[in-house]
């Protein structure tokens, strides 16, 4: 696929109401389909809301739960990235993002970095994912990170080593409005992160952040896509719910990676040697 139309869908889910959020997801999927999108991306925990605390147990679904199957089935004309509380057969609870295409699950990413500091308490309820894998669909190589995962450069680095064309970051990023700028400090930081990763890893980066408030915590929206020169290709410049479709020209990557061959020159063996030595020391 040389061109890819990605719908960034920044929604305001109803906290712990999976049925309502499922209906809202399906309506947005229909809209994206009619607008000719190839892929629609929803934010972190879009199916459940974020500030779940003890209701984590009530909203958790196994990947074969009818609610989840219904969403997967909706991926017939448009690929879907959605996020929910995934419960495994042995009752571990993960913050997961699913890539669904042609009515099947292509990939599940389980959040590997669970912030448990300041206002965050994810480590209290969720199990840590333990893998970062790229995947292929329609000849496009992609990888997913969920919110805090992207604040650890090792995660996009690992995806980059697989040569991904596209990194997808579903998020539930809270804003701290007291920054002296109409755009909150964390929002500005995210924009820098997305643009920097796109440029450093010569790929496209899609960041979809939720909106709304939960217990006074403000989710700032401002979803965006950056291209391989760190250029912003589109986005939603508000903290309101909305959808925007951005057309990605994946053929650009060929020339970009020839012009700036960072990926070619990356030496994972050097990293491996140093890490092996360091981690050996720790032993």
């Amino acid at each position: 696929m040389q061109r890819m139309k990605v719908a960034l869908c920044q929604v305001n889910p109803r906290l712990s109401d999976v049925k309502a959020n499922l209906a809202m997801h399906l309506a947005n999927i229909e809209e994206a389909k009619h607008a000719g999108a190839d892929l629609i991306v929803f934010p972190e925990l879009g199916l459940t809301g974020y500030w779940l605390k003890d209701s984590t147990l009530d909203v958790a679904r196994t990947i074969d739960h009818p609610d989840i199957c219904e969403l997967i089935q909706a991926s017939c004309d448009v690929d879907i990235v959605f996020s929910f509380v995934e419960e495994t057969k042995d009752h571990r609870f993960y913050t997961s993002s699913v890539y669904a295409s042609a009515r099947r699950v292509v990939h599940v990413h389980r959040k590997v970095y669970l912030p448990t500091y300041g206002l965050f308490e994810e480590g209290r309820h969720f199990a840590r994912g333990n893998d970062v894998q790229a995947f292929q669909t329609n000849d496009v190589s992609m990888g997913m990170m969920i919110c805090e995962d992207a604040w650890h450069p090792s995660v996009p680095y690992l995806l980059s080593l697989s040569g991904v064309d596209l990194m997808i970051i579903p998020s539930a990023g809270p804003g701290r409005a007291l920054s002296g700028d109409p755009n909150s400090g964390s929002q500005q930081f995210w924009e820098r992160v997305v643009r920097t990763y796109a440029q450093l890893f010569t790929c496209y980066v899609v960041f979809v952040n939720r909106t709304g408030f939960e217990d006074g915590v403000f989710f700032f929206g401002h979803s965006l896509v950056a291209g391989p020169q760190g250029d912003i290709l589109g986005g939603i410049e508000t903290h309101e719910p909305g959808m925007v479709i951005v057309d990605l020209d994946l053929s650009r990557l060929r020339k970009e990676r020839f012009r700036t061959p960072l990926l070619r020159d990356e030496n994972p063996y050097l990293t491996q040697r140093i890490l092996a030595r360091r981690l050996g020391d720790v032993k």
Binding site: S179, G180, F218
Partner: peptide, 14 residues
């Protein structure tokens, strides 16, 4: 006071 300049849209949205 200076850093409080941008809060009005957030507070009304809240």
């Amino acid at each position: 006071a200076a850093i409080a300049q941008g809060v009005i849209p957030v507070l009304t949205a809240f």
